[in-house]
Amino acid sequence: MSESDHSVSLDHYIRLCAVVLLVIVCTTSGMIATSFSHIGTGWTLKVTLILSIAVINAFLVAGYLMHLLTEKKLIYIVLGFTVFFFIGLMGLTIWATGEPPVGTILH
């Protein structure tokens, strides 16, 4: 059996994971509180706030749990292409909502 990897410490990961879990619990609670708040904010603002918090959670999972912050360049290139096509997909969706195809029945 080969030697253990001294660059990895289980205690370090346990501490990191505890922090990540705590932040996820707090941010999820924040999302729920925002969703149920009656502070007169518009629907668009509420959705923007909730999705922004979700992005923070996603950053924590991708950055720390998936080690994306310290990944190799090739992975970033792959993800760069993914982001490009994902934005294109969503962009087409938003574009399509404004210009329905000819013949679409609008109620």
Binding site: T28, M31, I32, T34, S35, K46, V47, I50, L51, I53, A54, N57, A58, V61, A62, L65, M66
Partner: peptide, 18 residues
């Protein structure tokens, strides 16, 4: 597995909260 978690991170607010 982390990716599956990532998808849920967006599914929960989109379906349950907005």
């Amino acid at each position: 597995w982390h990716f599956v978690d990532l998808v849920w991170i967006f599914l929960f607010p989109v379906l349950y909260l907005t």
